[in-house]
Design a binder for these strands. Structure first.
Lengths: 129, 129
DNA sequence: CTACAAGCTCTAGTAACTAGAGGTTCAAGC
DNA sequence: GCTTGAACCTCTAGTTACTAGAGCTTGTAG
């Protein structure tokens, strides 16, 4: 099956300008072109783009994804390195969760203080000082 | 007290280029200048910058902070609007936490599957497909 | 008065796209 | 065969919140 950029977009739920962008930065192989210069994608492109989109949804950066792809196609010790990337990403995610939870409780305090106050001012802002 | 940009930076823990950037985008009032064209900040600047930094640390965007400042200095219904901004930010934060927790468990699954497998390949990457 | 730290402006780079202008190609209907 | 409109093309610039660097000037301590 050959996909036009629109069909690939539909198949992967990845927006058209994003697909072109991925090609431009080299994370997605260049598509061959039709007589009229339009991009023609193969199933390989489609699979790769799926992998990219899925990884992005998991919060991997394009840089990390590039690395993962390289390792996957590459050396024997790629497996170990891939594992490390995923683990370090997991650590990052956990750190972010902790931060956000702290933030949530701070914001909550802000809002509660504000609701208790009987002044016409919103203390949210002055509390930010 | 009058602050040089370096002193203001020390007082607020905000980096010097960031301070200049805040001035440039108009979220921090322009400083007056010395005879030799160096910025001179007042206590007001220092307070404002503290507010900005604190809000940034709580994850507010500069756009939101601009709004908050405007509302604070402004109209009588500013208090209500400020409250709304804070509340909607709180909602965002909670959404992000939920997403990240989902993500964490997905990543965990990835890693666990990989560790159970006895193949030399890291399943992390192929699982991403 | 001489170093050297601290300040200045300006440009460009970061990540991951998104939007828009202005032009071309494809496919379907008549 | 022709027309119309959707889909495609390239290119530039904008987004957010900064950061880095070049090349120059000013302030201050000894």
């Amino acid at each position: 099956m050959i996909y036009s950029i629109g069909q690939l977009s539909q198949a992967t739920q990845c927006k058209i300008p994003t697909i072109r962008y991925y090609e431009e930065i080299g994370i997605l192989d260049k598509a061959s072109r039709s007589a009229g210069n339009q991009r023609q994608y193969t199933q390989m492109h489609c699979d790769r783009l799926h992998l990219i989109c899925h990884s992005r949804a998991l919060g991997f950066s394009l840089k990390e994804i590039k690395q993962l792809i390289k390792l996957q196609n590459g050396q024997f010790d790629g497996a170990h390195q891939s594992h490390q990337i995923v683990l370090s990403h997991l650590t990052d995610v956990r750190k972010k969760i902790t931060q956000l939870e702290k933030l949530e409780s701070q914001l909550l305090t802000l809002v509660e203080q504000c609701q208790q106050s009987q002044t016409p001012d919103c203390l949210c802002v002055s509390a930010l000082k």
